[in-house]
Design a protein around this nucleic acid. Structure first.
Lengths: 192, 192
DNA sequence: GTTTATATAGAACAATCGTTCCAAAACGGG
DNA sequence: CCCGTTTTGGAACGATTGTTCTATATAAAC
């Protein structure tokens, strides 16, 4: 077996995620990656391939992690409203020092979707995934008498997704956490 | 006076706006600008300064044009709801061939705000401007019995702005115009 | 200790970037 | 015609980019 790997592939990928979240794909140079990740160029190339491949791996990991989180959150029994409150609250609250860098998926959609076929396809797939998770939970809410049966679950699910896009952009560029929480409350009026 | 300018500064700026809208600031090279704008390098530098200065001029022009449009739209008398319908409809409808590139202000917020102090400041100023225009019109709507007096106009104004951010991102990355119109309708339920 | 795989660092690459300098051509007003 | 300005294109710049090659050191397994 010879020598063992000295860094945790997943852990380094997580650091790459944070870098790409803050600066975006283009503005993050390979030199930035090697210095901030503490791994040399050659090891990065050997382990993850080139910059674009590394980015796709980071984005896919981020996306999977987020979908898992959302799926688990939406499996929580009881009324749906506090779940969405928690979700939106998390979206507007910073996870980094010096502000909330926003969602990597959202940032990548804006930066790359019109020019990069793979990212555009991933954006659409991600939208479908989120809509599916929301729709499932909204139907359950309707069965529980928690949501009016006159509402269209699919349309509401898409609406929730699109609302999250706006919150992510606002959190990244504007900050103003309290204001965004107020917006989140107003957005959830669509459920009443 | 010697030789006259052969191109219209404002017109070329409009073309620059379209380029930056589609590709963003970083991904638009100076070579792209010279070829698509039909103006040589030296003329561009002489007229607008370097790439960053040109971008700021384009963004400022775009922003001013948009604020003028919004201001004029919100001065329309009568119920507020059809005005917002029209605004949101315009936001999700493409203005370019091959899809809607989204709002240049929104795209720039995502791409540059965390790293560029000037853009971040402009984003905040733009948010204040939009909130002010919306707030004024919402108060008028309340006076006309068009909007419940229990609503907070300022919070609603911010909400409308944040909703537009989401619509712009979704239109740029996902397309799906009909879906977005449905989302816009749901978003405006917050006024009821 | 030999083998095998990994880690690191230096060098070099071709390409692209934004930018500047320069010279020649084109145009309008005196 | 001449002057002043603008336009254009070629050339070159220094810097940065992503990427590859190479060599050397390091650690674990046999």
């Amino acid at each position: 077996m010879s020598r063992a790997k000295e860094f945790d592939e997943a852990e380094v990928l997580d650091q790459a995620i944070e870098l790409f979240r803050v600066r975006g794909f283009q503005a993050t140079s390979f030199a930035d990656l090697t210095s901030e990740l503490g791994v040399s160029r050659q090891s990065l190339y050997d382990t993850y391939g080139d910059k674009q491949t590394l980015f796709h791996a980071a984005l896919e990991r981020y996306r999977q992690r987020f979908l898992d989180f959302l799926h688990r959150l939406m499996e929580t029994p009881g009324p749906i409203r506090p779940l969405l409150d928690q979700l939106f609250q998390g979206a507007v609250s910073g996870s980094c020092s010096s502000g909330n860098p926003g969602c990597l998926m959202v940032n990548s959609m804006v930066e790359m979707a019109p020019q990069d076929d793979a990212i555009r396809a991933l954006s659409l797939a991600h939208a479908r995934d989120m809509e599916r998770i929301f729709t499932t939970r909204l139907i359950i809410a309707q069965r529980n008498g928690d949501l009016s049966p006159t509402k269209d679950p699919v349309a509401l699910a898409r609406y929730l997704h699109h609302t999250l896009l706006g919150l992510s952009v606002a959190a990244r560029a504007l900050g103003e956490r309290e204001t965004l929480i107020q917006t989140a409350q107003l957005a959830l009026l669509a459920l009443d």
